[in-house]
């Protein structure tokens, strides 16, 4: 490939224009931006509006509502004096959505939780794409032994249901942390769920990439470059990679959606984000013990997840149509 001329203003800008005309995608993008922004502003909300520390247990505390002092944990009204229930949605700035079983402000935790959920899912998606691109390109381009080894490795990963795989890895790492030579990853580090989620979805992303590379390898311009004696790393970097990027871009939002769901599932099983930090999954888990008395604690973060995942999927669809990539992964499970 000898294209010294500047690339035509073509495909990317055209795609973006197409996307901009897609109203659903634009709405999804707006929703994502809005949610991300409000999550980023979580500390402001907790400090200036709700005026609570959403990471400190506060079951013995009380708040002022309409000039009355109200206990955060309220004794149940029964002859045996059994049990207490956290305060429900107050409709005030403090404890807008009520308290969880540890007396913490659910609304403030939702925002902080969203930060972690979004951070983990986006980082996991990016990491997964990098790994999958590396694996897919290596397997597809070099073929032979590399392909065989990588494919068998994928087979092994593929042979265990995704969630089971992620759960196994999490259980091993989450209680102990990870020590890899000089690198020590603390047990409550967000890196652990990020890496695990990225890892388990690699086979799903690598497969379509490998397919695309296999097709590209036969393409005339690659053959031409080979005949010209261009080093292989140059072919990979300048010929193969740019042509795979559309696939990667389309996979991005879809993978982020999958990662967000996986993160919430792991956190729901208490092996994702570790307390007292929050994610939408951990809040749903906190709410599980209150589902009969304070269902809002579990419902609100679930709705947030649905909204974000839906927006990501719509955006992914929009990108796919705009970039005209047909075979990008449509699986999720």
């Amino acid at each position: 490939m000898t294209a010294e001329a500047p690339p035509p203003p073509g495909p990317w800008r055209q795609a973006m224009r197409g996307l901009a005309r897609n109203r659903a995608s634009m709405a999804a993008l707006a929703v994502l931006v809005l949610i991300t922004l409000s999550c980023v502003l979580a500390p402001l909300y907790a400090r200036d509006i709700a005026r609570t520390d959403p990471f400190t247990s506060n079951v013995a505390g009380s708040i002022m509502l309409d000039g009355h002092e109200v206990d955060i944990m309220q004794p149940n009204d029964n002859p045996l004096h059994l049990g207490l229930s956290p305060i429900g949605p107050t409709g005030h700035a403090a404890y807008l959505l009520g308290a969880d079983s540890q007396g913490r402000d659910v609304a403030a935790r939702m925002l902080y939780g969203g930060r972690n959920s979004l951070l983990i899912s986006s980082c996991a998606a990016v990491l997964c794409l990098i790994l999958a691109a590396a694996a897919g390109i290596a397997a597809g381009f070099f073929g032979g032994l590399v392909d065989a080894v990588l494919s068998r490795l994928m087979d092994i990963m593929w042979a265990v249901p995704v969630y089971l795989f992620a759960i196994s890895l999490s259980i091993v790492t989450v209680s102990q942390g990870l020590k890899l030579g000089p690198f020590v990853v603390e047990a409550d580090s967000l890196l652990i769920p990020i890496v695990i989620i990225a890892l388990v979805y690699v086979p799903y992303a690598a497969r379509p990439i490998r397919g695309r590379v296999l097709a590209l390898r036969q393409a005339e311009f690659v053959t031409a470059a080979r005949c010209l004696g261009v080093p292989r790393w140059r072919i990979v970097l300048f010929d193969i990679l740019p042509n795979v990027t559309t696939t990667l871009v389309v996979l991005g939002p879809l993978l982020m959606a999958l990662s967000l769901l996986a993160e919430s599932a792991l956190s729901f099983l208490s092996i994702g984000v570790q307390a007292p930090a929050a994610s939408w999954g951990t809040i749903i888990q906190d709410g599980e013990g209150l589902i009969y008395t304070r269902p809002m604690v579990a419902i609100a973060p679930g709705l947030a997840i649905v909204l974000v995942v839906l927006a990501l999927n719509i955006l992914g669809d929009g990108l796919r149509d705009a970039l005209d990539v047909r075979d990008a992964a449509r699986r999720s499970s």
């Binding site: 149940n76 029964n78 045996l80 004096h81 079983s101 209150l290 589902i291 008395t293």
Partner: peptide, 12 residues
Amino acid sequence: LDRLGEVGSRYA
């Protein structure tokens, strides 16, 4: 825990 209230009032 979240059933204590119900048990205490209706099934004391």
